[in-house]
Simulated scan of single mutants.
Amino acid sequence: MSYDTEHVRNAGDPPGTITNIPTFTALLDNTHLAALYTSIRQTGTTTGPELVETIPVSKKTVYDYLHRLEQAGLIRTVGDDAGTAVYAAEEFELTLTVRDTELSITPELVEIVANADAYPAIQRVLDNHGLVTFALAHDLVHAHSEGDITIRQMAELTGLSAGTTYDLVEALYSILDLGDDDSAPTTYTPVDSDDEERTLRDELFDE
């Protein structure tokens, strides 16, 4: 796996380069750091004291995280409230190049990582199969929600078991608010030949 650092940029106008790659990648390993970034992004603007009340870590850790994120270009100070810094999140996109296939790491993926404590399947896939498999499954879940791909096909493409794939898709459906309010992900069962499986794999990996 290689990190294409030329494509690690904020998606603002004009875009700015994200620095300190270790902090960026820590968003995908540290659920509390991911939750803090996600909280800032979802609220639009917020302050350190407000984050201390919402993130289950110490006050010192919150401010350490804020410093790390700001130094990395993932958040910025946009004002102050009675002498307290007000923060806003930067949009970003990281391109991972794996086996000549590009996978995008975005704030949406960070939001999913922030929910790992509530959905064991997320942490299980990250720990046992790595970021590449997790990012690929994330990309495929939208196609699944539209009925374009089956659980079995997702399992084949990601190398996950059918059960793990279903658990992960169910978690992503909930976090991303996919499907109907009371529905679980549907396991479509069309008759798929080996040739169809191979064609799908070739299209996704550009083989």
Rank of each mutant, 00 (worst) to 15 (best):
I122G: 05
S193L: 01
V125F: 03
A114F: 08
P107Y: 02
T77M: 14
A82N: 15
T17W: 01
D194R: 11
A143V: 08
T95F: 15
A35Y: 06
D13Y: 10
I21C: 00
R152L: 13
T23E: 04
H67E: 14
I112P: 00
L140T: 07
A155D: 08
I21N: 01
K59C: 08
L36K: 00
D182M: 07
T186F: 08
A35G: 02
T47I: 04
L204S: 07
A34E: 00
Y3I: 09
A85K: 13
P22M: 01
T133L: 08
G79V: 03
T133H: 09
L200V: 05
G179W: 04
D139N: 14
H32W: 05
H67P: 00
D194E: 15
D127S: 09
A121I: 04
R76T: 10
L94I: 13
P56D: 07
G12C: 08
T150R: 00
D29N: 09
L126S: 04
L126A: 08
H32F: 10
R41H: 08
T25V: 07
V98K: 12
N115H: 15
S183R: 05
T150Y: 07
L33P: 00
I21Q: 02
Y37P: 03
I18Y: 00
I40K: 01
A26G: 03
A184R: 14
T31W: 10
A118V: 07
T97F: 07
L36A: 04
A89S: 10
I175G: 04
V57T: 08
Y63I: 05
T187N: 14
R76A: 15
T133I: 09
V110E: 05
V113C: 06
T199I: 15
A116I: 04
L27M: 03
P185Y: 01
D192K: 13
G179Y: 02
E50L: 10
D192I: 15
E203V: 15
T158F: 00
L136Y: 10
G179T: 01
S145K: 07
R152S: 15
P49L: 07
G44A: 04
T84V: 15
F92D: 02
L172H: 02
I175D: 02
V57R: 11
M154Y: 08
A116S: 14
V113Y: 11
L69E: 02
I149Y: 11
T31M: 11
